[in-house]
């Protein structure tokens, strides 16, 4: 099982400050030093949604100050032209030397959002693949071949460059209906997550093995024993193989990283450690 860390909501209501970003960078470095697999930034937490580029920009700052930890960036896709996100992720993957996970969220609310998301996802996957592409959808036409654009009106294809550093940029989806790795931002109740993971498993059948099935949870390290048991249940009953820990409101994030890395993570990663050690740290 793998573990991610999310610093959660960033208070930028007063305009933000360099300290607020320095805080995120500090937590990302601490998570890296403590052996977490990934740190997660969500556009929702930075700008409250919208076209969504603030989390990608913050992720570049995190990438520049970390060296090993993967960086998951959750962005809504389909609100604007998908090539913007495709290019930003590709550059970010090069800045981070191939540590990026692109976590894409169907935008909520907007009319026709689901259809736009599906087209935008297709465009991104083609943009990140080697070589040029041509796309003809209901919402996006690439290249557009507008007659006003002179010599470009006849272009057959477009190549988005640079390509991501990873041979295949990890693309995770915040919805169950795609045959791609899934990440579910769970609320208080685990029931919606349970049905999402079930649907996703059916979609991937007969070979779901190895595909990330990630669950984001608000965790309170003060109740470590309950957290370990819940994580076991999520793993055994839902097939969750990736837990992204977001400190519950009111908990100290740095302290949470220290406790989670010593008490929760070893239960699922350090198989065979002498049980006598457990009571010493728990």
């Amino acid at each position: 099982m793998k573990f991610g860390f999310s610093p959660g909501r960033v208070d930028l209501s007063a305009g933000g400050s360099r300290e607020s970003v320095a805080g995120i960078i500090g937590l990302a470095r601490l998570a890296q030093e403590s052996g977490f697999d990934s740190v997660w930034l969500d556009e929702e937490d930075f700008s409250g949604g919208g076209p969504g580029a603030a989390a990608l920009v913050a992720a570049a700052a995190v990438a520049a100050r970390t060296s090993a930890i993967r960086i998951g960036v959750i962005v809504p896709l389909g609100l604007t032209h998908p090539i913007y996100a495709a290019e930003d992720f590709a550059v970010l993957d090069n800045i981070s030397a191939g540590r990026v996970i692109a976590a894409l969220r169907p935008p909520s609310g907007a009319a026709g959002a689901a259809a736009r998301f599906e087209e935008a996802l297709e465009v991104c996957l083609r943009a990140w693949a080697p070589g040029p592409f041509r796309f003809r959808g209901e919402h996006f036409r690439i290249p557009a071949n507008l007659p006003q654009n002179g010599p470009a009106a006849a272009l057959a294809q477009v190549s988005v460059t640079p390509k991501p550093a990873q041979p295949r940029l990890p693309v995770w989806i915040l919805a169950a209906r795609f045959a791609l790795p899934i990440v579910i931002p769970a609320g208080e109740s685990l029931e919606p997550a349970r049905s999402a993971f079930g649907l996703h498993r059916e979609l991937l059948a007969p070979e779901p093995v190895g595909s990330p099935a990630a669950l984001m949870r608000d965790v309170d390290p003060a109740h470590m024993e309950a957290l370990i048991q819940e994580t076991e249940r999520c793993r055994d009953e839902m097939g969750v193989n990736y837990l992204i820990c977001r400190p519950a409101r009111g908990t100290d994030a740095a302290q949470a990283i220290a406790l989670l890395s010593r008490c929760l993570v070893p239960e699922f990663r350090m198989y065979g450690y002498p049980r006598e050690l457990r009571s010493l740290t728990l």
Partner: peptide
Amino acid sequence: HFWYDGYCPSLIVGAAAVAAR
């Protein structure tokens, strides 16, 4: 954008990496 040599298409992302260091 879209030039074969990978000319940087995402300046603000690149600038943030510079700003962080």
